[in-house]
């Protein structure tokens, strides 16, 4: 079982993740060509300006207006993306297989980063259940997406601390990670792929076409 989920299934997950992502981006670009405005409105200068203002915390008015949400969101997303990439155990696995390795974070740091992701997910869950606006636009899919996102971190945390049977937890962890990879292109987790496009289009339209700003 372990060999299967950590061998062929990983390949399948990555192929679906990368292939699916490329396909979805390709589809988005193709269907945007149908519209007169999208490509002629794009501008590198204003795209970069928009990204700078929305990828740096507190660099736009709205983020300053909502400090708690801004801190939680940035912490959650930074840890979500960088923990798996710079986790010692992951790098060791890749090193063993392909003899490639890179810089890693210390295990205690990644442990805390994992806790931040889990805590962020709890924050989002509570917000979904209590904020009237968010509650009103929440359906099962929103909970499922949140679960898909946080499961690799919960299982990873449990596996690392060797609670509830390491081997089972490890298999669950790998499965959860693969599930997340497969889900990214085909669910609204695709905001990971599309963020840069929606952001830069709006920034370009506001800056390049409408002479204004989007922050």
């Amino acid at each position: 079982m372990y060999e299967f989920v950590s061998g062929p299934l990983v390949w399948i997950a990555f192929i679906i993740f990368i292939g699916g992502s490329l396909y979805r981006i390709f589809y988005m670009l193709q269907s945007s060509k149908k519209e007169k405005v999208v490509f002629p409105h794009m501008s590198l200068e204003h795209s970069v300006a928009s990204l700078i203002h929305w990828l740096i915390p507190f660099n736009n008015q709205y983020m300053r207006q909502r400090p708690v949400f801004t801190i939680v969101s940035f912490a959650f997303h930074i840890c979500l993306v960088f923990t798996p990439i710079f986790l010692l155990a992951h790098v060791i696995l890749i090193d063993e297989s392909w003899n490639i390795s890179w810089w890693t974070l210390s295990e205690s740091v990644t442990d805390w980063m994992t806790i931040i992701v889990i805590a962020g997910a709890v924050f989002y869950l509570v917000r979904r259940l209590t904020d009237p606006v968010v509650k009103n636009v929440t359906d099962t899919s929103d909970f499922v997406l949140l679960a898909i996102t946080v499961l690799p971190f919960i299982t990873g945390f449990l596996a690392y601390h060797q609670w509830f049977g390491t081997n089972t937890m490890l298999i669950l962890h790998i499965l959860a990670g693969e599930l997340m990879l497969i889900a990214i292109p085909f669910t609204r987790l695709s905001h990971m792929l599309f963020f840069v496009f929606t952001r830069t289009y709006f920034g370009s339209e506001q800056g390049h076409v409408k002479n204004s700003k989007d922050w």
């Binding site: 988005m28 670009l29 945007s32 968010v134 905001h191």
Partner: peptide, 25 residues
């Protein structure tokens, strides 16, 4: 409609942050 609407619908994570911007709300 084309890529814009499709991408907007598939990107919206239902966070509700837009509500704070709206004078109707």
């Amino acid at each position: 409609t084309g890529g814009r609407l499709w991408t907007y619908i598939n990107t919206c994570i239902h966070c509700g942050l837009c509500s704070e911007a709206c004078h109707w709300f």
